[in-house]
């Protein structure tokens, strides 16, 4: 059965800000008059274990109340999480995959499709994009917390949330660290790399 609610899945490890990223994304969406829902998936786990958050954004009330999703966009905060968890499971065949890596998207896609080091990427027409979110976070924040850089990148690839709305909630949420996180988000948006060599604007 088709489920026509735009969905994002954020995947990383406990402690990397996955749940906060989902909250920020949802708040940014409702700030623009949309409906949103962020469902974190927990186990009886701890820092370092798999953490995911499903975010739905829609122009109508969101009635789907379950975490399993067929995400249109998958944001991978941790470059090794796919070795131990099938984070791309259920992803839309033509979905967007934003992967935290300094490598070229072609290289990352080849490795994800080969399944050499973990779960194979099955989505046939997925558009793989990369951004060196860890590098940005270390440079701008001084800590490898990659969520704001990746959210910035997300606004460059997905039209449901604008950068302006994201910037507003980052400023509300981070207090004295707000400016640095806005900077990380902006860098993430600017440094997003796509497989096709089309120049990307602002």
């Amino acid at each position: 059965m088709s489920v026509l609610v735009p969905e994002v899945r954020l995947a990383g490890r406990g402690g990397q800000g996955v749940v906060t990223a989902g909250e920020l994304l949802g708040r940014a969406a409702i700030g623009e008059g949309r409906f949103a829902q962020a469902i974190p998936a927990f186990g009886p786990e701890r820092r370092g274990a798999l953490a995911t958050c499903t975010v739905r954004v829609s122009d109508g009330e969101i009635l789907l109340k379950f975490a399993a999703a067929a995400p249109d966009v998958l944001v991978v905060l941790d470059p090794t999480i796919w070795h131990v968890a099938n984070v791309t499971a259920g992803m839309a065949a033509d979905g967007i995959l934003i992967f935290n890596s300094p490598r070229a998207p072609e290289d990352v896609e080849e490795e994800l499709r080969s399944g050499r080091r973990g779960y194979r990427l099955a989505a046939t027409n997925a558009q793989v994009m990369t951004v060196d979110a860890t590098g940005i976070a270390l440079e701008v924040l001084g800590r490898p917390i990659t969520n704001t850089a990746l959210l910035g990148a997300l606004t460059g690839a997905w039209e449901m949330v604008t950068f302006e709305a994201l910037e507003r909630v980052i400023r509300e949420h981070f207090g004295k660290n707000a400016e640095a996180n806005v900077q990380a988000a902006r860098a993430g948006r600017e440094q997003l790399r796509r497989v096709t060599a089309i120049a990307q604007g602002g």
Partner: peptide
């Protein structure tokens, strides 16, 4: 209210 599905999920 359903555990996780509503308790930990955020909505407007």
């Amino acid at each position: 209210y359903d555990g996780f599905i509503l308790s930990h999920a955020s909505e407007a």
